[in-house]
Design a protein around this nucleic acid. Structure first.
Lengths: 124, 124
DNA sequence: ACCTGGTTCCATGCGATGCAAGATACCTGG
DNA sequence: CCAGGTATCTTGCATCGCATGGAACCAGGT
């Protein structure tokens, strides 16, 4: 994404990420601990959820503040040490909760976008 | 939803609505003009996107400010006059743009929630 | 005429979130 | 010693959902 990209498409995508990014990051930690730049790359490869460091690190700080993740420093073979983030029980519960809520939300949006809204009345 | 409902489920759902509500409201106006309370009821019936007047009216003000909708006053058979909101060409373009972006976003989130993230490497 | 209730509209202030920009530190290689 | 890549974090801003409160209009009962 270009720095000065203020198209309507970019704006819609930016607003979409709100609130979802947190749980996608938790989902990435589900099977093993991850570190910041690793999460950043995984989000970038997904395409639709690409973001920046200025978004991920404050998010990770909030997750740690709310006891959804714990962190451990670990040496790296090449480069500075990495802070690995792992799910706590609360974090896993939050992820499960979101996984339960998401399908209903997704289907509701799909319905609004695809269902016609005729003048005569919805369905009553 | 109770007024003082601050459960994790409610919190996740609240954050999810961010950015999506705007386009669901536009989608409701796709086939005919709507007025405020009518939009509020339609959102409430969907379940997952139920919200309040304090959310809808500022949203409608922003849509009008950005020239995505136009408004016309119309008398009501029972009650005060209603302000009907209709899509402009820009509004319809924004809705089409969102309709194009949404499936990719939705599938990306689905992938994060359902795809395992094994230790050995993603897929490379 | 009064007043109670329902309907419809809107404004204000707060908390949460994504983001651009910048700062700091570590390691490797020339 | 210095340049570049890797990795972490902070600050200030803009946007958005929401609770709360207020204002206006109409119908019906007393």
């Amino acid at each position: 994404m270009e720095p000065g990209d203020s198209t309507k498409q970019a704006r819609a995508a930016a607003q979409l990420r709100k609130g979802v990014l947190e749980y996608c990051v938790l989902a990435l930690m589900r099977d093993r601990p991850r570190y910041g730049v690793e999460l950043l790359h995984a989000l970038e490869e997904s395409g639709a959820l690409a973001t920046s460091q200025g978004t991920v690190y404050p998010l990770l700080s909030r997750l740690r503040r709310d006891d959804l993740v714990t962190t451990t420093w670990q040496e790296s073979a090449s480069g500075p040490p990495r802070r690995y983030y792992a799910l706590t029980d609360s974090g896993r519960a939050a992820l499960d909760e979101f996984t339960r809520v998401w399908p209903g939300f997704r289907n509701a949006v799909d319905a609004f976008l695809t269902t016609p809204h005729p003048p005569t009345g919805d369905l009553a």
